[in-house]
Design a binder for these strands. Structure first.
Lengths: 221, 221
DNA sequence: GGGCTAATGTACGAACTGGTTCGTTAGTGA
DNA sequence: TCACTAACGAACCAGTTCGTACATTAGCCC
């Protein structure tokens, strides 16, 4: 998340549309992630900004559009990360494992993003559906997975015939759940899925699971 | 979810504490699942009941306690289902697969429960943490998993040394994500994870994944 | 330097929302 | 049958909450 950094304010410059806009987005991201859409307060967002509520309506039009803008920026961050994926020089098994680990790391590092996605799911993805920006950019990661899977199948290493979307769902579900359901899972089963001392175990477990699935001897079942 | 069934109203009986309470819970479950905690409206819940808002406060005390009561009842349903698990007569591989499938089916059949859990996670499980009832009952499924894992390891079928909680997390994450993130996933990747014609594929995929992980040849990695 | 527009701040209001006050009635036990 | 209590309903209230009308100013362009 590109947090607004202090620009050269020494001169006491007061008008800066770009940074006002960005600051609103920063604060709104935290507020929506904290309280959900209905729970988020426009006044609260304004108060934590060094500008006023009037500006939120001036730049974004309303609470709803602000939330859409927050989502768009949040997704752009993960898309960015995906675009920087560089695993295709590895052999298929190592590439998939690395990909899974990067997904794992990214989800853990961005709990606010996870919460925003949960919120958006509560709203049946209506903001995503209405956003041209989000419709346009697919997921770069999918293309990467597609190529790794093809290579793995060609070399005979991968026996399963999943497609890239399925594998992405499999990897994401584990990474996402671990963060999104951390609290209820912890409260009910007494284990913090995001505890630091469990991290390596779960990270390895995810890789093991995906690789085991892809390379399993299907004829044995 | 034990929906309130029409009792013998022919006589025009008007007072029935138990059924008024139950009806409020039914409606509240839907409303909280639909709109989240902050988005849910006490007035709306009252309106959809054949009683009034006054009764909600009379029986539950407030919105917060009502939500806790909704959660408690929702969890009791899944605990009930878990208690009826009967898979230990199967061999370990079949037992795990069956368990995974039952979890899969249960999550799919109870989307409102999934949404409530998502909502509760947004609130960092504070209601669960404060509920004695929920603290008391653990998860019967965990005990079942524990025994199957022990049997599987003893017979040499299972090579992975996961514990029951981890395996439960693995299975749940896939089943939960498929329902909870259905909308964003569908909007972004153009695939409905809960579409009827995909159902068997994902159901099988889950079982394959878990079994592959448990029986993988660890020395080969 | 003067005007023009983008940017900004203040104050307010209409609608909503959780919760309560006050009064009423059905059913039951003596 | 009568009194007493659990169950119930209508109206109301105080505090919020999103959104806006109106006034103002900084900075750019000529």
């Amino acid at each position: 998340m590109t947090t607004v950094e202090e620009p050269a304010r020494s001169g006491g410059r007061q008008r800066d549309a770009a940074r006002t806009r960005a600051e609103i987005l920063d604060v709104a991201t935290k507020e929506f992630a904290r309280a959900g859409y209905a729970g988020a307060r426009v006044d609260e967002i304004a108060a934590r900004t060094r500008t006023t509520k009037r500006m939120i309506y001036y730049y974004f039009g309303g609470k709803e559009q602000l939330f859409t803008a927050v989502l768009e920026r949040a997704y752009s961050v993960i898309r960015q990360a995906e675009q920087e994926l560089d695993v295709e020089h590895l052999d298929p098994v190592a590439a998939i494992r690395r990909l899974a680990e990067l997904t794992f790391d990214h989800h853990e590092a961005h709990p606010d993003f996870i919460r925003l996605v949960s919120v958006e799911n509560m709203h049946e993805a209506e903001h995503i559906a209405a956003s041209e920006e989000l419709a346009r950019i697919g997921s770069p990661a999918l293309e990467v997975i597609r190529r790794i899977l093809a290579a793995g199948r060609e070399s005979g290493l991968f026996t399963a015939d999943v497609d890239a979307v399925d594998l992405h769902a499999m990897i994401s579900s584990f990474c996402f759940f671990r963060v999104s359901n951390r609290h209820t899972f912890g409260a009910l089963f007494g284990r913090d899925l995001v505890a630091a001392d469990q991290r390596e175990r779960y990270r390895t477990m995810l890789g093991d699971m995906v690789i085991a699935y892809l390379t399993a001897d299907r004829t044995a079942d």
